[in-house]
């Protein structure tokens, strides 16, 4: 049996757990804990251990989705999670521009681990205050070949599209090497 891994990362409360939950065939294994007063204004609990979802392709192939811990103090786990990943998705809450700087830092950190293919998913595009993906690209100073995709993490079709776009990017990477 072959297993492959994708990592879903992004700033705190970007929707990583929901993204994995939407597509995973198993209930997402995650540890949600009560959080500090500082972050309670955004959500009541957050992922302090990694999220873990699974998509079984057939008897020989399984795709695992790992969500990085939502809070900065667990960033030591990122490198461990990143090891051997097929690609990664950076999920961003498009309505919270105050998190864009952190998203940029996360992208830089993950890219420093390895040249693994990745896409950026601009989540919460169903909300009125969402920044358009192309504006987010400019603010994050991403190269033209980096895909910045509209996303609604609670919508299965939207999550599928993001995963597929990442897989297409991975396929393209074979041609560039």
């Amino acid at each position: 049996m072959q297993t492959v891994k994708m990592v879903v990362t992004g700033p705190f409360a970007a929707g990583k757990t929901e993204f994995i939950q939407t597509i995973s065939e198993i209930a997402v294994v995650s540890t949600e804990r009560q959080i500090s007063d500082f972050t309670r204004t955004v959500k009541s609990s957050t992922t302090v251990a990694m999220d873990f979802g699974r998509i079984t392709v057939d008897d020989d192939l399984v795709l695992y989705l790992f969500g990085t811990p939502g809070q900065k103090r667990f960033d030591f786990m990122w490198e461990i999670l990143a090891e051997g990943m097929l690609g990664f998705i950076v999920l961003i809450d498009s309505t919270r521009s105050e998190t864009f700087r952190e998203a940029k830092q996360i992208i830089d950190i993950f890219r420093s681990y390895s040249d693994t293919p990745f896409v950026v998913a601009a989540n919460k595009q169903d909300l009125e205050d969402a920044w358009p993906p192309e504006d987010i690209r400019i603010v994050l100073e991403l190269e033209p070949w980096v895909k910045v995709l509209p996303c609604v993490a609670k919508d299965k079709e939207s999550v599928k599209t993001v995963l597929l776009e990442l897989l297409y990017t991975i396929l393209e990477s074979y041609d560039h090497n």
Partner: peptide, 21 residues
């Protein structure tokens, strides 16, 4: 972390695996 600024490398899995996914 400094961004690499260039296109990513292909992963260490067979292309056929990606197609199956």
């Amino acid at each position: 972390g400094a961004p690499s600024g260039h296109r990513p490398k292909a992963p260490a899995v067979e292309k056929s695996v990606v197609r199956r996914l």
